[in-house]
């Protein structure tokens, strides 16, 4: 009995579909922080370079190529 339940805790191998959605959200967030050059920024802020400038130091430090 105990073995069956203990094994059942870890055998669910297939990931649920929403995990891939979460992954795309994460990639989108990384894009906003490190790559956005106006595509997103012009929609959420007054300047198309707002996100680019706001995350300037973080982007350099993450090591993403920048200007």
């Amino acid at each position: 009995m105990s073995q069956i339940t203990a094994a059942a805790r870890n055998t669910a191998v297939n990931l649920p579909t929403w995990v891939w959605l979460a992954m795309m959200l994460a990639v989108g967030l990384l894009y906003a922080v490190t790559f956005d050059g106006g595509l997103l920024s012009s929609r959420v802020a007054t300047s198309s370079m707002f996100l680019h400038e706001f995350f300037h130091d973080g982007r350099h430090l993450f090591g993403v190529p920048c200007h």
């Binding site: 994460a26 967030l29 906003a32 922080v33 400038e53 706001f54 995350f55 300037h56 973080g58 993450f62």
Partner: peptide
């Protein structure tokens, strides 16, 4: 800005 970048980046 950097704290936001690292917190969001860390979350992602």
């Amino acid at each position: 800005g950097r704290f936001a970048a690292y917190s969001f980046g860390g979350g992602a």
